[in-house]
Design a protein around this nucleic acid. Sequence first.
DNA 1: CGCGTACTATAACGTTCGATATAGAACTGC
DNA 2: GCAGTTCTATATCGAACGTTATAGTACGCG
Lengths: 214, 214
Amino acid sequence: MGRPREFDIDTAIKTATELFWRKGYEGTSLTDLTGAMRITAPSFYFAFGNKEKLFRIVIEQYYEKQLELLESALREPTVRGVAEKFLYGYADVLTGPSHAPGCLALNSSLPSAEDDTVRAWLADLRGELTVRLRKRFAKARGTVELPMDAEPDALARYIAVTAWGLAVEAQSGAKRKDLHSTIAVALMAWPSADVPRPEQRSTSRKRASPRLRQ
Amino acid sequence: MGRPREFDIDTAIKTATELFWRKGYEGTSLTDLTGAMRITAPSFYFAFGNKEKLFRIVIEQYYEKQLELLESALREPTVRGVAEKFLYGYADVLTGPSHAPGCLALNSSLPSAEDDTVRAWLADLRGELTVRLRKRFAKARGTVELPMDAEPDALARYIAVTAWGLAVEAQSGAKRKDLHSTIAVALMAWPSADVPRPEQRSTSRKRASPRLRQ
DNA sequence: CGCGTACTATAACGTTCGATATAGAACTGC
DNA sequence: GCAGTTCTATATCGAACGTTATAGTACGCG
């Protein structure tokens, strides 16, 4: 059957997964891949066809696992259980110790900030925004606006997370009304202020009302 | 004072902004930039120094506007008003008609899917996940799990948005406990089921409890 | 052994990337 | 008009990119 392969293909795929996770799709060069796999370019092309085909293999393996998580979540007896299990499970994946932080699929588009001053800077700017929100919430804590045991850090991060998620959705093609109805749900996590002065309230907006709490 | 510049520099920056928004930072080549600006490479380098410096100008202009939105939101009399104003304002930016969809700063890392089969495929995979959630929620609607007037579409998108946002946060360095406390807040938007069978509930997790609703 | 097949090594392909050396053109101030 | 400065055009740089042609090596099978 010809000359036997001198490297383990599954190990090579794992190596590639790690690289894509850390450096993104375009950020991972063939030199990176073949170097880490300790094979030469022709061996790479013989085994995988090209970079994109390997990437698709990697992502498909990843999504198989993600789908397992999703299916398992969907089997929860309550829809809240579905949400809970999926989000916590996903968070575990994002912070798993055996790979770079974040989602492989999203990181592949959003290359790592490591060794990249531009991206590190962008991440900093994002962080700054969260800081400002946190300070505002911390100041409000203990007043009628926010109970004393609220967590400004968690609240600020929640707003930021929602914002980044909206940005991803928008880029994928979500329309304004989609985003608005999503925000309407997101705001249900928020405490209504106890009778703020009505004339100073934020610009009233018509918004979809999911009415989850009957 | 020497030879006058033959192109308008503000117009050129606007052109660059549009390109970065649509194609991302690395996805926008100097050929793209100089071509759209209708200037040659030396003119570009004379005017802007290099690609990164131009990008920083563009992003700084963008963040100035974002900060205006944020400051304006922070001046809201209630913290809920802050969240509301900021999120809706951001959504407006994301879907603004004068530029590519999404956030300029995030898109710069997450290059556009247009003319890119790999990224289009990744966006599709993300969409599929939302579809599955929606179907599950739609099926639950009208049962004890979910009231009849709930919106499966908005709920599913909310979970997805939260997930993508978590992914961005995780890549920027957020720790697992940060994500968990964020999720705890996110789940406050969710209706608790009316007494599900306890033995079938999802794996109980200790989680930070912001206790927003006293 | 020797043929066919499967894999690997060397070396280089053409293209695109961001960036520039060199020279010349267009303006102001003297 | 000449000097000094500022911007532009041509033409090209070296490096890195993904990819491949060519040749050779190692195995199973007859």
